[in-house]
Structure formats: C-alpha cells, structure tokens
Nucleic acid binder design. Structure first.
Lengths: 201, 201
DNA sequence: CGCCGGCCGTGACAGGTGTCATGGCCAGGA
DNA sequence: TCCTGGCCATGACACCTGTCACGGCCGGCG
C-alpha cells in the first residue's frame, strides 16, 4: 500500500484527485492539505511515502516544500503536479530534490502509474517538458535581475519598484535594461512574461 | 440518473472530477471535453442534462459556451466551475444563462449537491461571491475601453495595441486614459489588473 | 597581485506614455 | 428638433522609460 499526501490549494481539485487515486487498490490517500507550509507536519504525522505537490500554493511553493522534505524527511518522495509546464520549473524541481514532474494536462489514468514509479524510486518527468527544459537552458539572468523583474511583472512604475527594492531608480532601470537585453525583449513587460514563461522567476 | 458533461482543459483535473462524480450513484458522467468549442456537439450527442464548465478553455470560454447552450439546447443546464472567483464573472455567467457558479475552492463533497440542485432547476451561487458581486457593481467601462484594456494586459506598447485594434495611437491613449480614470488606477497596467480582478474584461 | 564580473549609482538623450483641450461623426432620448 | 454620450482623431505638454557611457565597490580566480 502506497501512502500518499495531496497538497493543492483548490479544495475541489484536491478532493477530486483523492477520489481518483482511491480507485486504485494499492494507493491510499493518508493526508490532504491546502497550504505549502502545512505539508511537512502533515507528512510527518501521516507517515506519507509520496507527496503530490502543486507549485502555486499559499505559504510555501511546491518547489520550496520539496526542498524542505528532502532536508527533513529524506525517505519521502516528492511528485510535482502543476498547471504550468514552464521549462525552468523542471530544472528547479529536480534541483529541489523532487522525484517527478507532471503537468495537469496529463491523462488521468497515467497519474497512478506515475505515483507507483516514484514510489519505486524512479524518476518521472513529462517527456515534452524534459526536452523543452534542456532546450531552453538555465536562466541567463543574475539573481538581482530576476528579483527586479519579479517586482516588475505587475507593471508598477520604476519608482515603485525602486522603493520596494530599496534601490535608486537609475539602478532599477539598468537592471531592467539588462534583463530586457538578455531575454531578447523590447519592453520590461515582455521581458517579465518571457522570464515567467520559462520559469526563470 | 443525472447525465453530466465535463469541460475543463486540464485532463488530470477533468479525469479526477469524473472519478469524484462517479462515486455518486445518481450521477453519470456521459462526456468529457477539453475545449470550449467541442462542448455543444458533445452535449448534443451525449444527451447531457448538466454541463460542468470551466471558464478558461481554448476555443471558447465557459461563459460563451453557456450562452451557446442556452440558445441551442435550452433544456441543458450550465454550471460554471472555475479557478478565479471574480465578481464580474458571476454577473456575466448569469447573464449568459448559467444556472450555477462555483469556485474550485469549494469543498469536494459539495459538488454533487450543487449538481443535483442545478439539475432540479435551482440556482447555485457561491455565497461569498454573490455578495461580492453585488458590492462591486457592473463594469464602469464602455465596450471599447474594455476591448483596448484587454489588449493592454500583456504590457504591449500603445503602438502595438493601436495596430491590433486598427486605431490611431491617440485614440488608444484616450481610451486607456479613460479606463485608468474610471478604475481609479494610475497606470494602464494597474487598470488592466483591476479590471481583470473584477471580471470586467 | 591584477583581472573579471556582478552590483550600485549618476547623468544625458531619444522615444514612449498619460493628460488635456478640441473637434467631428453618429445613434438614441427628451 | 436639440442634446447627450460613446467613438474616433489630432495636437501639445509634462513626465516616465529604455539605452548608453561612465565610475566606484567588492568577491573570486588565475
């Protein structure tokens, strides 16, 4: 019997996934949580063997949770299941110690198989995404550039970004200009979108 | 037996919802589609009685599908189930003839009950969202302003927006300026975000 | 040590953006 | 009929942005 924990912020999806996995005779859903920062405690008390993690969650992201689990409960295996198949996410998930990466476009009947493979110690990576991840390569942005770009995704004027980052407006513009150049964009909005689409921020 | 059709672009979620609803003895999932523009045909051939529609779908949005169903298959009832609980969505869904509106935060066990109520001819509206919808009121934007604002959400420069809308740059700036004023924003990016958060675009 | 590259800042310039005043066109209501 | 309000457009103005050149600080590496 494979003991599994579900982490997804949407209760309906979480419950539906539980129903789907409970159809399998060799899988048992032993815990469900809706926030990233509740996963660790729940995994510990429920003695889960596999954690199915969404990335976008309040509290902690699934990627951060995977890292936490590797450090605190190395025997537990993490399977990232997320809406957005961004190339950079795969790399970051693997770096964080995740054993698998699926997008929610995956046919439902493949989920149980993926869980079994992860439980058996194998890696499960969405094949399309794996190649795309290798193609796009690592982020060309420096840490600071990523940070500034993240503050620019909502279209705030430079003055606001500078204040939030405690920098001068000139420096912010320089970082943004560098990011725009590196991403091949012509606007900071475009650069932010490209960076997000690639999972760089 | 309630015959139900599922429309959601994420195969995993779709399959999981199917598993969840199949647990109910009085509900039968008779069709599943991943695109908005496939719903009508599938609803016809499967003789579905209730359509569970996500809003964000390729082809047609769930709101547009609800409108289509009301026109073509008035006996079929639409239940919108979506990720984003934006106030304006509720109003638009009801205007489009939907019989219910749920967010994916809803507890899983309430879904079947909602389906039954909709099938019985009752309206089902997320209570929090219903009040919020009444609070926020209708969109203050004119049709043209909404359209231009929609083209501005990705941060494109005015010149690009003007080209896409076949307008002069000056007109686009006027529309954007009006939208910024009406939404109480100070930037077109902020205005676009506000409009989207309220479901106006 | 010298060199490199990331980081922070300034200053200046061209071009994009937000605001306003003004005007014309057209459909709907008083 | 006149008047209102939405839509389209122009022009002018102040301000913001993106780019470039330049300089200084610091940590890592040959």
């Amino acid at each position: 019997m494979i003991r599994i924990l579900l982490a997804d912020d949407q209760a309906l999806v979480r419950g539906a996934l539980a129903a789907l996995l409970d159809l399998e005779t060799d899988i048992e859903v032993v815990a469900q949580v809706g926030r990233g920062d509740e996963v660790l405690a729940a995994a510990r008390s429920s003695q889960a063997e596999v954690c199915l993690l969404d990335i976008e969650m309040p509290g902690l992201t699934g990627l951060e949770v995977a890292e936490q689990l590797r450090a605190e409960l190395p025997a537990v295996r993490s399977l990232i299941v997320t809406t957005f198949g961004r190339p950079g996410y795969v790399r970051r998930a693997l770096d964080a110690g995740a054993a698998g990466f699926l997008v929610k476009d995956t046919p439902a009947r493949e989920l149980a198989a993926a869980v079994r493979r992860v439980h058996a110690g194998l890696r499960v990576i969405d094949p399309d995404l794996a190649t795309e991840s290798l193609m796009s390569g690592p982020s060309p942005l420096t840490a600071r550039e990523s940070e500034i770009l993240q503050l620019a995704i909502d279209g705030s004027p430079v003055a606001v970004i500078a204040q939030r980052a405690s920098l001068s407006v000139g420096t912010v513009r320089n970082h943004l200009s560098a990011a725009i150049g590196k991403t091949g964009a012509t606007t900071r909005a475009e650069a932010a979108q490209l960076a997000r689409a690639n999972g760089w921020i």
